[in-house]
Design a protein around this nucleic acid. Structure first.
Lengths: 202, 202
DNA sequence: CCCTATATGGAGGCTGCCTCCATATTGTGT
DNA sequence: ACACAATATGGAGGCAGCCTCCATATAGGG
């Protein structure tokens, strides 16, 4: 029962500051959703009714703003991870997690790029979030490797990368004759049969 | 024996025009290689020793310049496709093609994005190139589906999308603990075993 | 009600995109 | 050899976005 506020807000802000911060955040969520991660920060400030300086005071970089704008969705994602832990079948749990992860990565068009960048820069406001995601992915992966059918040679990092790649493609390609399902089927099972005709794709 | 010039050049240009065009192209290749597809066009013009206007006269858009700068590599890619057609084993041929395709897509950091965009816009200088690539992919895919072990449910388009996604990730991720091999293994075989422990991944 | 710590906005300096046209260069016809 | 159209050039100029800085405004404790 920490707080019911949708996005965590730094305490100790003056009332006007907090109000402005909220406005910026709200505008940012709209714009990122609509125009992808490259939405104009000045435009966001304008719509929030504040000056550029105010925006930068609260969110020193685009990534900081992104991270804040993702906060709700990240909570939702973590909630899914908790649910998935309760699922008995390891493969199903992994699948559910990967699906949710992809949804998250597709929150804003282009999001995969800064997430990937954060993964190696570690100085980004997104990094912390990232590392958590990789490690959760690792958790489900290991469970599936031990108790399910995930291949043993696969790494949490590699799996995460692939998820990012898929999310990236899907965000840009869905209008063009490709479905989430089709791509994820390749992701899960590859483009090759492993042992002649086997399963559920016929 | 058409011409030995490395990049096709429109005929009927005045001598100075052709010279400048070449300079721009050379500078562009360097800059795209070094800074990715977002390299500054003004900077390219500057290094080529021409004005911005000249650059835009010869290459009206970033994509036009990109397409021209890729010309050599595209020829090389098509050459590989011809070689691969001679390979007896359908799966090997497909694999070789996909490998070359990825190399091509990784020519410049960020290239996958405009390629994907060209796929649905069809008005881009890259589109023609794109459609060819998809159709060649389809050719090798079908052969492998008929005579090799590619899964029947897979589409040329989907396979191409995945290749783009992998190329995109790899260009940005290799510094960060991920190898081409690992990712392509997931691409080819998925992250799941299809029928219990099978093959070559121990 | 005052006074200070805090917050604000928007001007200003920068880079990049792209267009436009007065000027310069080419090479053809004589 | 030369002149003169057709062609090509460059960089100024207008626009938009990023980010910083600081004179000014405001909140809210005493």
């Amino acid at each position: 029962m920490t707080t019911e506020s949708p996005v965590e807000e730094p305490a100790g802000l003056r009332a006007d500051a907090r109000r402005n911060r909220d406005r910026v955040l709200k505008a940012a969520m709209q714009h990122f959703e609509l125009h992808g991660i490259s939405a104009s920060l000045e435009e966001i400030a304008r719509q929030a009714g504040v000056g550029a300086g105010t925006l930068y005071r609260h969110f020193p970089s685009r990534e900081a703003l992104l991270a804040a704008a993702l906060s709700d969705r990240k909570s939702a994602l973590l909630a899914v991870s908790r649910q998935a832990r309760e699922i008995e079948d390891a493969d199903t749990a992994l699948e559910r997690w990967l699906e949710a992860l992809q949804d998250y990565l597709r929150s804003f068009n282009g999001l995969p790029a800064p997430v990937l960048a954060a993964l190696k820069q570690e100085a980004s406001p997104l990094s912390l979030s990232c590392e958590t995601l990789v490690s959760i992915t690792g958790e489900f992966l290991e469970r599936s490797q031990t108790h399910g059918s995930a291949r043993a040679s696969i790494t949490a990092n590699d799996l995460f990368m692939c998820a990012i790649g898929m999310a990236w493609v899907l965000n840009r390609a869905e209008a063009c004759g490709t479905s989430t399902k089709a791509l994820n089927s390749i992701f899960a099972s590859g483009y090759l049969e492993k042992t002649g005709k086997t399963a559920h794709d016929g």
